[in-house]
C-alpha cells in the first residue's frame, strides 16, 4: 500500500475522533501534520502511582500504517513526566507487544492503543523501571519498533 492509504486512514481516524470524542482520560493535543500526533493520557482510577498526573504520548506513523504499527513513546516535558512502570524506560520507550512487529494488528488504532496504555498503567503496582534501564537509555540507538524486547515478565 502506498502513502496515500496511510494518509486516508489517518484522516478518517482524526475525523472520527473529532466527531465522537475520545474516551475519558484521553485527549488529542495535536495532529497538525498527519504523520505525528500528540495525545495526553491520564489514569482515572485511584492507583497511587499515577494519581493526578498527565502523560504525553507521541505517535509517529509511517507510510505503511496501519499494516505496520505506529511508533509510540512517552515524551518528557516540565509538566509531563515519564510514568513509572517495569515496561517503560525512563527515556519514554514503551515495551508493549501490541506496538511490536509481532503483536500489532491493523485493526488497532490510535484510540485503542491509548486505551491499552491506560490499562497497562492501571494494572501496575510496581514503582520501578525495567531491568537495565540506565544501560538501555545510555546505549540505545535503535528506533523503538526495531528493538527486540525480551518479555522477561509477561504478568505485568
Amino acid at each position: 500500500m502506498s502513502a496515500q492509504f496511510a494518509t486516508k486512514r489517518l484522516g478518517k481516524e482524526l475525523q472520527k475522533i473529532r466527531n465522537s470524542r475520545l474516551p475519558p482520560g484521553i485527549e488529542l493535543v495535536s495532529a497538525e501534520n498527519l504523520e505525528e500526533w500528540l495525545l495526553d493520557i491520564q489514569v482515572l482510577d485511584d492507583n497511587p502511582l499515577y494519581q493526578n498526573q498527565t502523560y504525553r504520548l507521541k505517535f509517529r506513523f509511517g507510510s505503511t500504517y496501519p499494516i505496520e504499527p505506529p511508533e509510540v513513546v512517552f515524551v518528557k516535558l516540565s509538566d509531563r513526566p515519564i510514568p513509572m512502570h517495569p515496561h517503560i524506560y525512563s527515556n519514554g520507550i514503551i515495551c508493549l507487544d501490541l506496538l511490536g512487529q509481532q503483536g500489532w494488528s491493523p485493526v488497532q488504532n490510535v484510540e485503542s492503543v491509548c486505551m491499552s496504555l491506560q490499562s497497562m498503567l492501571t494494572g501496575n503496582s510496581k514503582n520501578e523501571r525495567p531491568p537495565g534501564d540506565d544501560d538501555f537509555v545510555r546505549a540505545n540507538q535503535l528506533r523503538p519498533k526495531d528493538i527486540e524486547f525480551y518479555y522477561h515478565d509477561n504478568t505485568v
Binding site: K8, P66, P106, V107
Partner: peptide
C-alpha cells in the same frame, strides 16, 4: 453505516 466500512483501511 459501520458495517460497510473496512476496519483496516477505514474505506
Amino acid at each position: 453505516p459501520d458495517w460497510a466500512i473496512d476496519d483496516i483501511s477505514f474505506c
